[in-house]
Computed example of a mutant assay.
Amino acid sequence: MQASDTQGGAAGAVPPVEARSEGEKQGAGQGAGLPAHEVVYRTLRARVLYGQFEPGQAVTIQGLVAELGAGMTPVREALRRLMAEGALEFQGNRRISVPLLGAAEIEQLLVARRALEPELARRACARIAVEGIAAMERIDGALDDAIRRGHVHDYLVENHKFHARLNAAAEAPILSGLVEGLWLRFGPSLRVVCGAFGTRNLPDMHKDLIIALKTGDAEGAARAMQGDLEQGMEMILRAL
């Protein structure tokens, strides 16, 4: 069964600001007390991360200014930061797009993820509290619910939330910061995967990882994470 995104419409469509998803709201921190450029940055970052900008789809700076109801300067600053992070690229004529990934880029991302994410899982296993594991189980339950409903956007939000929670538990901000940068680069392609295969056909090893965390099996957690990320990157390669 191929999933459809009942909330976001067609892949790559940009929802109006008042219709922001929960993922965008979390990314923007609701905007409370933040400068305009930071709110715009977090909003656009969430849209990139959850595939609301389709890889290769061009958007204009002026269009984003009108869409977000923000000034030109905050939008330019947010785009500059996202381009520096490799999440967006400049196409000329004031057009910006999410870079298209090829086999060479996916191979490099896989090498980087193999080096970083299993190590974060090992460290998290030694540090995570019972409450943290329970929170990850709740997130995984919400992810399973999104799969049953075939809701692509919720699936992408909960999947990222699961990994981000684990990485935070590792208490290794340099490593987790590097991983977040990698997710910005391949996250948009996960939406392409969902469109190609449907959420019901996307395997993960989250439950194996949770079992390893509960039993204090650091190497088991690392193996589960490596298996999970390799499955995901293989699906991206097959979909592109």
Score class of each variant (00 low, 15 high):
G86R: 01
L82N: 14
A129K: 00
R113N: 03
E117C: 05
E137M: 10
E89A: 09
G150H: 09
G102M: 08
R95G: 03
A103L: 10
Q108L: 01
A112G: 11
V152T: 09
V98Q: 03
E131A: 12
I139G: 06
L143I: 08
M83W: 12
R80Y: 03
L109M: 11
A142C: 11
E85L: 09
R123S: 03
A78Q: 06
A103M: 13
R113K: 08
V130K: 07
Q91V: 06
G132K: 08
R138S: 14
R80E: 12
P118Q: 04
I106T: 00
E89L: 13
R123F: 02
L82Q: 10
L101K: 01
M136C: 12
R114N: 05
A121L: 08
E77V: 03
I139S: 06
Q91Y: 06
E107S: 06
A87F: 12
A124Y: 12
P118Y: 04
G150V: 09
R80D: 12
L110S: 08
A134V: 10
Q108P: 00
E85G: 04
M83P: 05
I139H: 04
E107N: 03
R95Y: 04
E105G: 04
D145W: 02
D140I: 07
L79N: 07
A135R: 14
R81P: 09
D154C: 12
A134I: 03
G92W: 07
E77S: 05
R81H: 13
C125P: 07
P99Q: 07
T73D: 15
H153C: 14
A112N: 10
L79D: 07
S97A: 10
G102K: 02
E89K: 13
R148T: 07
H151N: 12
E105S: 09
T73I: 14
R94M: 00
R148K: 06
I96L: 14
H151G: 05
A84R: 15
E105V: 06
I106L: 01
R123Q: 13
Q108E: 00
E77Y: 05
A134G: 06
M136Y: 10
I128T: 06
L120K: 00
L79F: 08
A87N: 06
E105F: 06
V75K: 04
T73K: 15
R95D: 04
L143M: 09
A142G: 11
G141V: 01
P74T: 06
R81S: 13
A135N: 04
D145M: 09
L79I: 15
Q108D: 02
